[in-house]
Simulated assay, not measured.
Amino acid sequence: MADAITPHFHNTDGVDTIFIGVKEFMCIGARPPQDHPHVFLDMGDESEMVCPYCSTLYRYSADLTATQTRPDGMLIGM
Results as ranks from 00 to 15, higher is better:
residue 46 E to N: 15
residue 34 Q to C: 12
residue 68 Q to I: 07
residue 47 S to I: 13
residue 57 L to N: 04
residue 39 V to M: 09
residue 58 Y to V: 00
residue 60 Y to V: 01
residue 51 C to Q: 06
residue 72 D to M: 13
residue 71 P to F: 07
residue 57 L to Y: 01
residue 34 Q to T: 11
residue 62 A to H: 02
residue 37 P to F: 11
residue 48 E to K: 04
residue 50 V to L: 11
residue 58 Y to F: 15
residue 47 S to F: 10
residue 57 L to H: 01
residue 61 S to D: 15
residue 48 E to Q: 12
residue 58 Y to L: 03
residue 50 V to I: 15
residue 43 M to R: 06
residue 52 P to F: 12
residue 46 E to V: 01
residue 67 T to P: 04
residue 40 F to S: 05
residue 75 L to R: 14
residue 51 C to L: 04
residue 59 R to A: 01
residue 65 T to S: 15
residue 47 S to G: 12
residue 48 E to W: 02
residue 66 A to H: 13
residue 64 L to I: 06
residue 32 P to D: 04
residue 37 P to N: 12
residue 41 L to D: 08
residue 35 D to L: 04
residue 66 A to C: 13
residue 74 M to N: 10
residue 33 P to H: 07
residue 43 M to D: 10
residue 74 M to A: 14
residue 75 L to K: 12
residue 43 M to C: 09
residue 54 C to L: 00
residue 62 A to D: 11
residue 71 P to N: 05
residue 38 H to T: 15
residue 38 H to L: 14
residue 69 T to P: 02
residue 71 P to R: 06
residue 65 T to A: 09
residue 49 M to P: 00
residue 42 D to F: 07
residue 39 V to C: 04
residue 43 M to E: 06
residue 60 Y to T: 00
residue 72 D to W: 08
residue 72 D to T: 12
residue 73 G to S: 06
residue 59 R to I: 01
residue 57 L to W: 00
residue 37 P to Q: 08
residue 32 P to S: 08
residue 36 H to R: 14
residue 56 T to S: 00
residue 60 Y to E: 00
residue 41 L to E: 06
residue 45 D to R: 09
residue 37 P to L: 09
residue 45 D to V: 04
residue 54 C to E: 03
residue 52 P to Y: 07
residue 36 H to S: 11
residue 34 Q to E: 13
residue 59 R to Y: 00
residue 42 D to P: 00
residue 50 V to H: 08
residue 72 D to C: 10
residue 71 P to A: 04
residue 73 G to R: 05
residue 49 M to R: 07
residue 72 D to E: 15
residue 63 D to F: 07
residue 75 L to A: 12
residue 34 Q to R: 13
residue 40 F to M: 05
residue 60 Y to L: 00
residue 64 L to K: 03
residue 48 E to T: 03
residue 71 P to D: 05
residue 59 R to P: 01
residue 42 D to I: 02
residue 38 H to E: 13
residue 40 F to D: 04
residue 66 A to W: 14
residue 62 A to P: 13
residue 58 Y to W: 03
residue 60 Y to W: 02
residue 40 F to E: 07
residue 62 A to Q: 04
residue 43 M to L: 08
residue 57 L to F: 01
residue 73 G to E: 10
residue 44 G to A: 05
residue 36 H to V: 14
residue 63 D to P: 00
residue 59 R to G: 00
residue 62 A to C: 03
residue 44 G to F: 01
residue 55 S to T: 06
residue 68 Q to P: 09
residue 51 C to H: 03
residue 64 L to C: 06
residue 65 T to F: 06
residue 53 Y to F: 13
residue 33 P to E: 12
residue 58 Y to E: 01
residue 38 H to A: 14
residue 32 P to L: 07
residue 34 Q to P: 02
residue 63 D to I: 13
residue 46 E to F: 03
residue 57 L to R: 06
residue 35 D to M: 09
residue 39 V to K: 10
residue 58 Y to H: 00
residue 54 C to I: 01
residue 36 H to D: 10
residue 59 R to E: 10
residue 75 L to H: 08
residue 64 L to G: 05
residue 63 D to V: 10
residue 69 T to G: 04
residue 75 L to V: 14
residue 37 P to H: 13
residue 66 A to F: 13
residue 74 M to R: 12
residue 36 H to G: 14
residue 54 C to M: 04
residue 61 S to V: 01
residue 42 D to K: 11
residue 49 M to L: 15
residue 63 D to C: 08
residue 74 M to I: 02
residue 44 G to W: 04
residue 34 Q to D: 12
residue 33 P to T: 12
residue 67 T to K: 13
